[in-house]
Design a protein around this nucleic acid. Structure first.
Ligand SMILES: [Zn+2]
Length: 507
DNA sequence: GCTGCCGGGGT
DNA sequence: ACCCCGGCAGC
């Protein structure tokens, strides 16, 4: 039984599936509510499962990763995503359910309420999961009952039912607020079951202290350490965690929306007139940002769910978290200060070819003149350095520069001395403090040199494309499989590191 | 034990 | 095209 009294339709749908967890199933595609795209064939390929205590959607792989980490939060339905008009888009309703499995042991203690309605595959029979109506109901419920006034405006817009011509689709620029609200949902005042004692106070206690940087309420959803409270057996439990934003190109993690937005705007997209983009479009956000839920970031506290505890413990035990490259947020002025000589030398860098460098030809990456060069530089550097760092034996892995995400706060006006990851395995005679600041990030002279030289053969194949190069599995670690390349996920030949391919020729 | 990945299977 | 996984070589 969900805290809301809504019996969630569950979508657990696989033979193997052992338990049913009241997730909200939401189509991948965006919906007409937000006047964005209507669900298309491709976008509706998957449903997404939202264990809604977090107000945003997950990709499948993210869900999978969480699943593996036992980081599944206590499920609460927060269908922040709105519904779509089932009548208008009948096809959208027909898609299959996503396949998610949760080992039985993890589900222990989860509100079970809804029994699995079937363990058939892809139950179309379970029309409930594919129903726009189901979604509709939920939406309505939340729109009327639980959403704060601001959000209500956004999502309670009643869906136009067929008949009338569609209003012209106007792509207006979204405010950050809307954007975040759309994406992550709005802060919900979760209805707390008041049985005997009103537990509102409890909730208030647990709610995280508001960070100093609060602009809009929507922003808070993203920025603040999110702690959603849910009720279970008249006990209030938090689902601790932390939002992270990862650039899908650079695999750089940011801890705030602003930062990722800035990063994307600077490095990966440009307007047609060449101006930098300060506000991410929905599409760009989709393609360039992946959201992560760092459930392990929060620890301690007695008021942590057993699940989270388990997750923490396991995560701790399994492996230290893979080094994450927190790059201080960059400023446009910084990039402008590149001297031409520097540029040229980095220009060279970009030809060096990092094995994992993504093709720069993607449409979201508008390559124009020096800007693209800039971006290329940044990417090449990021990639190569990441490669270097990750490919080194563990002992010489650089200390984590960031230590805590708090450190990110200091990014702003860092004068000079940013700790650099030292790649000292190669040679220590690079003792020079000489370095170079590129786009707000400082790189040591040795690093620069090496990169410039094309990741020279030192360490042989280890750093290049060789056979003994570490692959995704060892680089990113098993707990972040969502960062692996697909091939590695499938236990096929890694497509990111190492030798590219068998040449696929026939004679 | 772990890592990488082939071959073979599934949808 | 995507996805899953048994099993094995090689460390
Ligand atoms: Zn890989």
């Amino acid at each position: 039984m969900s805290p809301f009294g809504i019996q969630p339709k569950t979508g657990y749908i696989r033979k193997k599936s052992v338990c049913t967890v009241p997730f909200a199933l939401v189509p991948t595609g965006r919906n007409t509510y937000n006047n964005v795209k209507m669900p298309s064939k491709s976008s509706m390929k998957y449903w997404q499962v939202i264990p809604a205590s977090m107000g945003f959607r997950y990709t499948k792989s993210q869900m999978k990763a969480m699943d593996r980490m036992m980081a599944l939060p206590y499920p609460v339905l927060i269908p922040k995503h709105g519904g779509y008009d089932a009548a208008a888009f009948p096809k959208a309703v027909k898609r299959k359910g996503i396949v998610m499995t949760v080992p039985k042991k993890f589900s222990r203690g989860l509100s079970s309420g809804s029994a699995a309605n079937s363990d058939t595959d892809y139950s179309d029979s379970a029309s409930d999961i594919s129903g726009g109506e189901f979604h509709h109901d939920l939406l309505r419920h939340f729109a009327t009952a639980d959403l704060p006034p601001k959000a209500r405006k956004l999502s309670s817009k009643p869906p136009k039912t067929v008949g009338v011509q569609k209003p012209k689709k106007v792509m207006r620029v979204l405010t950050v607020e809307e954007k975040t609200a759309r994406r992550f949902g709005v802060p919900l005042a979760l209805p707390v079951k008041t049985e005997g004692k009103p537990s509102e106070e409890k909730v208030a206690e647990i709610t995280p202290p508001i960070k100093e940087s609060m602009e809009t309420s929507a922003k808070d959803v993203v920025t603040a350490t999110t702690t959603t409270t849910v009720t279970k057996n008249d006990t209030t439990l938090p689902c601790p965690g932390h939002l992270q934003f990862e650039c899908t190109r650079c695999f750089i993690l940011y801890s705030s929306f602003d930062q990722i937005e800035q990063h994307i705007g600077q490095f990966h997209i440009r307007q047609e007139d060449g101006c930098p983009v300060f506000q991410l479009s929905e599409d760009n956000f989709d393609s360039l940002v992946s959201i992560k839920w760092d459930a392990t970031a929060v620890s301690n506290g007695s008021n942590v769910t057993a699940i989270s505890n388990a997750a923490n413990a396991l995560a701790q035990q399994l492996m230290p978290p893979p080094p994450v490259w927190y790059r201080p947020s960059v400023t446009f002025t910084a990039s402008a200060t590149l001297s031409t000589s520097e540029v040229s030398c980095y220009r060279h860098v970009t030809t060096v070819r990092c094995p994992s460098a993504e093709p720069l030809s993607d449409d979201s990456f508008v390559s124009t003149s020096d800007w693209s060069l800039d971006a290329e530089i940044a990417m090449a550097l990021d990639q190569s350095i990441n490669h270097k760092v990750f490919q080194l034996p563990a002992e010489v892995k650089p200390k984590k520069v960031y230590k805590k995400k708090v450190l990110l706060k200091m990014k702003e006006k860092r004068p000079v001395v940013v700790k650099k990851p030292k790649v000292k395995s190669i040679k220590k005679r690079d003792r020079e403090m000489e370095g170079m600041e590129v786009n707000g990030e400082w790189y040591s002279a040795s690093t620069i040199r090496k990169v410039r030289l094309g990741l020279q053969e030192r360490n042989g194949e280890k750093l290049r494309g060789g056979k003994n190069m570490r692959k995704c599995r060892s680089v990113y670690g098993i707990q972040s499989q969502d960062q692996w390349c697909n091939m590695c996920k499938w236990k096929k030949r890694c497509s990111r590191f190492g030798t590219p391919k068998p040449p696929k020729d026939e004679e």
